[in-house]
Simulated assay, not measured.
Amino acid sequence: MKIKTYLAVSIDGYITTQEGWPVQLSMPAFTGRTSYGLPEFLADCRGAVMGRTTFLPALEAPEWPWPGLRVFVLTSSPLPEGTPAEVVSAPDPAELRKLMEEADLGGDVHLVGGQRTLDAFLSIGALDQLGVLTVPRFVGSGVRLTADGSPFRRFELRSSRTFPDGCLEQVYLPAA
């Protein structure tokens, strides 16, 4: 099981706009799970892990955003009523990783969400692959990919490709 991410980021370093929308929504060619290499990325995923902030809006969504995936939530608060019974939560990334391993998913886990969840898994050495879709937009403000004061980390480029609209996919592995 690998924990891997596929995050969209603006060229000025933001993963959301100032209104809180994911930056990939600013691209006319974005059509959700069928866009920008996501089908290939998701093909091996059997689980999704995220923080509470990313998870909560899914409970009110007209369609469950992670069909067919086991969902794991990093949170120290109880999950609200209406949470599907198969959703697993834990307050600690190491504990949540152990629960993912014990679930024997038969595939990888997609780390969905923001900088705090990404940083939590990076801090315990549990991110196996960092996928970044660079969107050719300046958004000026919003949530940055990394928080101020994040530790220095090295990555090695595994692959890259450019889409016709200028989006650039880069896949990195944590460097030793």
Score class of each variant (00 low, 15 high):
residue 54 T to W: 06
residue 125 G to T: 05
residue 122 L to N: 15
residue 131 G to P: 13
residue 91 P to S: 01
residue 104 D to E: 15
residue 141 S to V: 04
residue 57 P to M: 10
residue 128 D to T: 07
residue 118 L to G: 01
residue 125 G to W: 07
residue 169 E to F: 06
residue 105 L to G: 07
residue 174 P to S: 02
residue 145 L to K: 05
residue 49 V to Y: 11
residue 118 L to D: 02
residue 122 L to D: 15
residue 53 T to P: 06
residue 62 P to K: 05
residue 42 L to V: 01
residue 125 G to I: 07
residue 64 W to Q: 03
residue 151 P to K: 10
residue 41 F to L: 05
residue 103 A to T: 14
residue 107 G to E: 08
residue 88 V to I: 14
residue 111 L to C: 10
residue 64 W to D: 09
residue 64 W to E: 06
residue 83 T to E: 02
residue 140 G to Q: 08
residue 73 V to H: 14
residue 162 T to H: 01
residue 47 G to P: 03
residue 160 S to Y: 08
residue 47 G to S: 04
residue 155 F to L: 11
residue 154 R to I: 02
residue 115 Q to N: 10
residue 66 W to Y: 15
residue 99 L to V: 03
residue 91 P to N: 00
residue 136 P to W: 06
residue 66 W to R: 03
residue 168 L to S: 04
residue 152 F to Q: 13
residue 51 G to R: 03
residue 160 S to D: 05
residue 115 Q to D: 09
residue 60 E to G: 14
residue 120 A to Q: 13
residue 145 L to V: 03
residue 78 P to G: 03
residue 154 R to K: 13
residue 111 L to F: 02
residue 154 R to S: 12
residue 85 A to V: 14
residue 136 P to V: 00
residue 167 C to Y: 09
residue 53 T to A: 10
residue 164 P to D: 14
residue 131 G to S: 10
residue 82 G to L: 07
residue 159 S to F: 07
residue 158 R to A: 00
residue 65 P to A: 11
residue 136 P to N: 02
residue 101 E to D: 14
residue 166 G to W: 12
residue 84 P to L: 08
residue 88 V to E: 02
residue 132 V to M: 15
residue 47 G to Q: 08
residue 92 D to Y: 07
residue 173 L to Q: 13
residue 153 R to E: 13
residue 172 Y to K: 00
residue 142 G to D: 04
residue 143 V to M: 10
residue 44 D to R: 04
residue 125 G to L: 06
residue 71 V to F: 03
residue 172 Y to Q: 01
residue 154 R to M: 12
residue 78 P to E: 11
residue 160 S to G: 07
residue 88 V to A: 02
residue 126 A to P: 06
residue 111 L to M: 10
residue 84 P to F: 01
residue 158 R to L: 08
residue 129 Q to P: 06
residue 65 P to R: 12
residue 148 D to A: 15
residue 80 P to G: 03
residue 86 E to F: 04
residue 111 L to H: 03
